[in-house]
């Protein structure tokens, strides 16, 4: 049985690896038809087509899209790269035609501040709230330790502790009616 599952596992893994390899090479082939003259241009090209969005198919980048418009835009990007244009120039070119929509990495500008700084703002707010919460818990615990005052939902007061001890020490043979449970206590406990 163990042998069988082992073998099965091996076959499964090999199949998975093979199919992954196949899909990877297929994707690779799609991009690799677009050869650029220098390897550094190819690297920039890969990075750029990852960061631009296909205008037609809204949830794909240029690298992953088969649509004709993406092919056109990829061709334009290759042309501009070969002509020595900077990444900014390529960005400007695309934004001038398709708008900010095309950028998967939005520019830092009025209207995108919230997008860029929102997560940090939320994190800071979260940390502040958590900090305040912890601080309050700690001071509350300290207060109840020192004064013995009852803090709601917190450590037991002296009186409660005595009651608890009494309940725990009661012999199991004794009848339930002898120990009166405190009001609000569930009988099942």
């Amino acid at each position: 049985m163990i042998n069988f599952t082992g073998r099965f596992k091996a076959i499964f893994l090999i199949t998975m690896a093979l199919s992954l390899g196949l899909t990877a090479s297929a994707t690779f082939a799609l991009i690799e038809t677009d050869q650029l003259s220098r390897p550094e241009l190819s690297a920039r090209y890969r990075q750029l087509i990852d960061e631009y969005r296909c205008p037609k198919c809204q949830n794909q980048n240029l690298a992953g899209s088969d649509s004709p418009i993406s092919a056109d835009l990829r061709r334009e990007i290759r042309r501009m790269l070969e002509e020595g244009d900077s990444n900014e120039a390529i960005s400007d070119y695309l934004v001038a035609r398709y708008g900010d929509f095309i950028l998967y990495r939005p520019r830092l500008q009025q209207g995108t501040y919230l997008l860029w700084w929102g997560p940090a703002l939320l994190l800071i707010t979260g940390l502040l709230v958590a900090g305040l919460f912890i601080k309050r818990q700690v001071t509350r615990a300290g207060e109840s330790d020192l004064s013995g005052k009852q803090a709601p939902g917190d450590a037991l007061s002296v009186k409660e502790q005595q009651k608890l001890d009494q309940l725990l020490n009661a012999s199991p043979a004794s009848e339930p009616s002898e120990t009166t449970p405190p009001p609000g206590d569930k009988p099942s406990l």
Binding site: K56, D72, R97, G99
Partner: peptide, 12 residues
């Protein structure tokens, strides 16, 4: 070639 289309921002 779709050149003017590209300049116009045509996507379909």
């Amino acid at each position: 070639q779709g050149k003017l289309g590209l300049d116009l921002g045509v996507f379909g």
